[in-house]
Design a protein around this nucleic acid. Sequence first.
DNA 1: TCGGCCCGTGGTCCTAGGCCCAGCGGAGTA
DNA 2: TACTCCGCTGGGCCTAGGACCACGGGCCGA
Lengths: 211, 211
Amino acid sequence: MPDDGLIRVLIADDHPVVRQGLRTFLELQDDITVVGEAADGDGCVAVAEETRPDVIVLDLRMPGSDGVAALRGLAGKQNPARVLVVTSFTDPATVLPAVRAGAAGYVYKNVEPAALASAIRAVHSGHILLPPDVARLLASGEPQVPGHKLTPRESQVLVEVARGHSNREIARELHLAEKTVKTHVSAILAKLGLADRTQAALYAVRNGFLD
Amino acid sequence: MPDDGLIRVLIADDHPVVRQGLRTFLELQDDITVVGEAADGDGCVAVAEETRPDVIVLDLRMPGSDGVAALRGLAGKQNPARVLVVTSFTDPATVLPAVRAGAAGYVYKNVEPAALASAIRAVHSGHILLPPDVARLLASGEPQVPGHKLTPRESQVLVEVARGHSNREIARELHLAEKTVKTHVSAILAKLGLADRTQAALYAVRNGFLD
DNA sequence: TCGGCCCGTGGTCCTAGGCCCAGCGGAGTA
DNA sequence: TACTCCGCTGGGCCTAGGACCACGGGCCGA
């Protein structure tokens, strides 16, 4: 295994354009070399075994086997690579499993390329790298992963929230008192560990409540 | 062209499972027959020219050429089919173009199958069929289609809103006064013709602000 | 019967959110 | 110079949202 001082990086993202763009940028860095690419979680694990990267830049949202599955696969093979997770959302249902599965870093997808290179160097040197809001989420200490299932009525209300409707509108549509809608929304937020309706709407969209 | 009293329906949806399910259900109706299917906007227009349906059940969100493009294509060919739009969202940026492009009806994707059959009959008999919130949106009379481009800073704030962050959190992250964030949010809502931050977050997600 | 769950509703209260005003400074353009 | 746009901030104010209590009824299983 060569050790010429370069950080060996594996890029895992389902979009070829993204992979190409990242590879081009990272290869311009003096201290980074891209040793492989993968388009999904399983591919990531396989290529990581083959190429032994130092750092894996891992998109969490990939069709088929996703980033969390990759993290678990890497842990199962005791692959030492440090994983820098790239995603668009601060979604409790995604963040905790990823961090628990061994992610060493977490950056947003729209991060500046230069900042991404810095993040790669940071996790390579052993740091845990988290955006403030992700750190806050972890620091809250609560089991933010949904532990309770929504009732049929709560799901119905959540769908309306995710359509951007106010409590009053929802009350009118479902023939309820506004107070009742508020109660359902509060229950939804408590069950899903979310702070407000906006987060609930985003959660619903991301989890297929409107499909 | 046969006229045996059956409503001839074309189903346009990118998911084969959806098309199959709808076909099965609609074929069970005494007064409806499914004369064709299409997987995208262009296919819809072509099949409609070929099969001359009475009613087209059209999914607005299809990859490649979408529902609005289909509506425009149908209008361009002066195809007389009545179009019943099916979608998940009350999105001003989508509703108005669809209705303006000639949609005779608008239903949500989670509509009960029986209600969908009723909707098909209604638009076939010449009615315009709209859910209350879509009608309200149209009745507001304002140009709800975004007419102004967001400034760089507004876009930045919108991204944070779409991450589910409060004004206070955004202020901290962007090193601004909370008051300033509120101002930007208000500007975003005004420019996009939205009522609140939840709608703004949904808009951002649907329009790729977090990609 | 009792307890849990679901659904619906009420009261109280606080604050985040958003509207409607205002102002300032910097940059660019006619 | 005047105007427009952008970014930033403030004041004042109202209400939608949500937390924290409460209650009742129906259904179902132990």
